[in-house]
Amino acid sequence: MNKRIKSLDFIRGFAICGILLINIPAFVIVTEDMKLPEPTHIESMISSLINILVTKKFFGLFSILFGIGIGIFMDNCKSKGISPYRFMSRRLTFLLILGIIHMVAIFWGSILVPYALIGFIVMGLYGLSSSILKNISISIVSLYLVSVIIKSFHIEFMGLDFIVNDSILILNFFIIGLYMVKSRYIYSEDSIVSKINRNKYIFLSSVSIMIMVVIIYIAGTYQSKDNLDISLLAIPQTILYFLVLQNISLKIKKIVFAFEIIGKMAFTNYVMQSIIGGILISVLGIVFPNSAQILYLALIIILINFICSYLILKYFKQGPLEYIWRKLTYRTLKKS
């Protein structure tokens, strides 16, 4: 149960590198009097590609992994004879505190606080069976997708904006991650049954994406500014990414190494990205990063992430923030 699942480190590392592309513009606080340069044709194309391939999908990947993390953590608690709810609630409380510090002192767009708060909800679902979790997820997905489709046809009613809120999307991805643990899928990713299920869901996700593309074309939301097309594709694309990346991690070991190293220190690297990004933008005198600048800033930051992660993990088992988070949680348990 304590054996580390390497494919998760790879996907986690890949996810935070993708999240970085979305976060870099948010490292700059935009004011009303700030004049933003008009993007060139190439910059607009890069921005469109980031929206289509990255926006919401990589936060989705990270959310599935967080849900998996909650499930594995609580399973480990049970195997050690520790109350999983008591242990996990302490862990999430410290994440909330660290997230508030990150949000106030470094990066206002930090995901740590919402992840901690939504984590408390998902923690309460741990006792449910995998079949119930699956039905809950299907219900949320159905409600979310139907609501996005309704909104894409310019129909509005009370509560619609709440249903299509990103928090609902994150909650659902957390539940999908917890389901993967409760169904034992994540513990047996190398088994023949898991491989068959993975390929089946890759096919279903691909078909779902094609159906969504048709709906987007009919509704004309690809021309809208509210990114409903991105919301509509977020769930099937994220699931497809997760399954394909899992296949890659199990088959092509050499490619996954760099992302695996970054993923082992995901917490530290996520916070480090906001610090390094802010410094680089300030030093380089960038008013607001365009798409091309986002790409080269991301490459620099990811390279620094890898080098730091490689050197730290060469001498230590964990990154500094992972160590602090673990120590705070265990220390509190021992005192109680």
Rank of each mutant, 00 (worst) to 15 (best):
I52A: 08
I52W: 07
I52R: 02
I52L: 15
I52G: 01
L53R: 04
L53V: 15
L53Y: 15
L53G: 03
V54Q: 08
V54F: 14
V54W: 08
V54E: 06
V54L: 09
T55H: 12
K56L: 14
K56A: 13
K56G: 07
K56N: 14
K56H: 14
K56C: 12
K56W: 12
K57G: 03
F58E: 02
F58Q: 03
F58V: 05
F59E: 10
F59Y: 15
F59A: 13
F59G: 06
F59R: 01
F59K: 01
F59L: 14
G60W: 00
G60Y: 00
G60T: 05
G60S: 07
L61A: 07
L61F: 05
L61R: 02
L61W: 00
F62C: 08
F62A: 09
F62M: 14
F62E: 09
F62N: 08
F62W: 13
S63E: 13
S63N: 10
S63I: 11
S63V: 13
S63R: 06
S63C: 15
I64G: 04
I64H: 04
I64T: 05
I64N: 05
I64Y: 04
L65Y: 11
L65D: 13
L65N: 07
F66A: 12
F66K: 05
F66T: 11
G67L: 08
G67W: 12
G67T: 10
G67M: 13
I68D: 04
I68Y: 03
I68C: 14
I68M: 15
G69R: 03
G69E: 05
G69F: 06
I70W: 05
I70G: 02
I70V: 13
I70E: 02
I70Y: 01
G71C: 14
G71Q: 12
G71H: 11
G71M: 13
G71K: 11
I72F: 10
I72Y: 06
I72H: 09
F73M: 05
F73K: 00
F73P: 00
F73W: 01
M74N: 14
M74Y: 11
D75L: 11
D75Y: 02
D75Q: 10
D75V: 10
N76D: 11
N76S: 15
N76M: 10
N76Q: 11
C77D: 01
C77Y: 04
K78M: 09
K78V: 02
K78D: 01
S79K: 14
S79G: 06
S79H: 07
S79T: 09
S79R: 06
S79E: 10
S79N: 11
K80C: 08
K80T: 03
K80Y: 08
K80S: 09
G81M: 01
G81K: 00
G81A: 09
G81V: 00
G81L: 00
G81D: 01
G81H: 00
I82T: 08
I82K: 10
I82D: 09
I82Y: 12
I82F: 12
S83C: 13
S83Q: 08
P84S: 07
P84C: 02
P84I: 00
Y85N: 09
Y85L: 11
Y85M: 12
Y85T: 08
Y85R: 04
R86F: 02
R86D: 01
R86P: 02
F87R: 07
F87D: 06
F87Q: 06
F87G: 01
F87M: 13
M88P: 12
M88I: 12
S89P: 02
S89Q: 02
S89F: 07
R90V: 13
R90P: 07
R90Y: 15
